[in-house]
């Protein structure tokens, strides 16, 4: 299902990537669907509801929360790596998460290739989106001395 606006705003604040960059991955809906599947609609709604009143300014508090914090960090890692990381046992105890859904895994070949960490580090996913012959000989962009 299409990722709701609240999820996109939450994701943008968490990742440091703009909405256009997030949509530009083409996998926003995939991530939202995966979260709903793994955590349940109710938990995702609860997480977004916890974010919305404070917005970006409230993120430090949210990230310190014993339940929302680990969930939010998993959302960051989902966007950055394209993979689901196993939630810690303490969190799983409080959630209706099926163990089979909480295994670490790459969501799809496409999410692997769209992981934002590759963009953040000024590179490209290993094995995809190559920069072309010889580009590795050029100075990295954002080169700071």
């Amino acid at each position: 299902m299409p990722a709701p606006t609240a999820f996109m705003a939450f994701s943008s604040a968490l990742t440091g990537f703009s909405l256009v960059e997030l949509f530009g991955t083409g996998v926003a809906d995939t991530y939202y669907d995966a979260l709903v599947h793994i955590l349940s609609q109710a938990t995702v709604d609860e997480l977004l509801a916890a974010y919305e009143p404070g917005g970006e300014a409230g993120l430090p508090r949210l990230l310190a929360h014993p339940l929302y914090g680990p969930l939010a960090r998993n959302v960051i890692k989902l966007w950055y790596t394209g993979s689901w990381e196993q939630l810690p046992p303490a969190v799983v105890l409080r959630l209706p998460v099926a163990p089979v859904d909480n295994v670490p895994r790459v969501i799809s070949a496409e999410t692997y290739l769209e992981g934002l960490m590759w963009k953040a580090i000024g590179a490209h996913p290993m094995g995809g989106k190559p920069l072309g012959y010889g580009v590795w000989a050029e100075a990295p962009a954002g080169h700071t001395h």
Binding site: I121, G122, A123, H124, P140, H143, H145
Partner: peptide
Amino acid sequence: EATGPFRGP
């Protein structure tokens, strides 16, 4: 310094 890893062979 930044040397641009994760690019190339």
